[in-house]
């Protein structure tokens, strides 16, 4: 990836993070930690990887995306707004009564949301259904789904994994946002989903492990996933929960809490610094 394209993506990802913080701050609730860890992934998918059109969000042959870890909606919403699916102003109304942006993704009311999600473990099954529909109809669109590393403690995730491999869904690409934390603490202490790579390999997936904040790595991994035939792909993205907000990084208490006014200022200043650094380069 050339430097200017990479910088563009980095700038966009920073804006996604700002949008997520904006949303959660105005909602006085929500999930900033995982929104920030997945921000680079959202950015890459919507600005580089997926075949989508914000002006025609339901185009039949578009690539699909399912946010299986639906609580990280603030990050996805910020991405969709930046990509032009709806106005950035909507972010300030997140979780408010009458708002378009619900606490968790609602496909009925929000352009660009391909599947309602939020109850952990369910989105990935729907992604399998979409991938299967493409196979049945002889279409070549691809289906992407981001899961949390805590989320994969749900049994349904492994039912879906078995299904995807059995039905040879090579048009399905899962991404595990492996930030190492879940709401009760480190994943290693709470539910023990590791080793994630070995599990997916045993379930018949093509497995890649990347730095989930590195756009070059993403480019290579998503390109490779497209070449895999006869089996589904998973990209295990090593990420930092709360990435780029100083006091949120690797802090479990920012899984599902909103910053107060003072904390909001600090977060925005942290992100503005990242942004100005990128723009100055």
């Amino acid at each position: 990836m050339d430097t200017s394209e990479k910088k563009q993506l980095q700038i966009l990802a920073c804006k996604v993070r700002m949008g997520a913080i904006e949303g959660v701050f105005n909602a006085k609730s929500g999930h900033p930690g995982g929104s920030l860890s997945a921000a680079d992934l959202f950015t890459y998918l919507y600005f580089k990887e997926m075949n989508i059109d914000p002006n025609n969000p339901k185009a039949e042959d578009r690539d699909r995306f399912v946010l299986s870890k639906g609580h990280c909606a603030p990050g996805l919403y910020a991405t969709l707004a930046l990509r032009g699916y709806f106005s950035m102003d909507e972010l300030k109304k997140l979780r408010h009564i009458g708002a378009m942006l619900q606490g968790h993704p609602d496909m009925k009311g929000t352009p660009g949301i391909d599947m309602s999600s939020g109850s952990l473990g369910q989105g990935v099954s729907a992604a399998c259904g979409m991938a299967l529909a493409a196979k049945m109809d002889g279409k070549d669109y691809r289906v992407y789904s981001i899961l949390g590393d805590g989320e994969i403690e749900e049994g349904q995730v492994w039912e879906a994994a078995m299904f995807a491999a059995h039905h040879k869904l090579d048009n399905l690409c899962l991404i595990v946002d492996n930030n190492g934390l879940q709401i009760d603490g480190p994943v290693s202490e709470v539910g023990g989903p590791e080793p994630i790579d070995e599990k997916y390999r045993a379930f018949g997936f093509d497995v890649q492990i990347i730095d989930g904040h590195d756009f070059d790595a993403m480019e290579a991994a998503f390109a490779h996933a497209k070449t895999v035939k006869g089996k589904p792909s998973v990209i295990i993205a090593k990420t930092i929960k709360g990435k780029n907000v100083s006091y949120m990084e690797n802090a479990v208490n920012w899984h599902g809490a909103a910053p107060n006014a003072e904390q909001y200022e600090i977060a925005m200043n942290d992100l503005k610094k990242v942004l100005s650094g990128l723009e100055a380069e």
Partner: peptide, 21 residues
Amino acid sequence: VDCGISECNMVGVAAGLATCG
């Protein structure tokens, strides 16, 4: 589509299929 003994996944797969018509 036989989903094997996994009813929760079956319902989710059905949902995904329905989003595609």
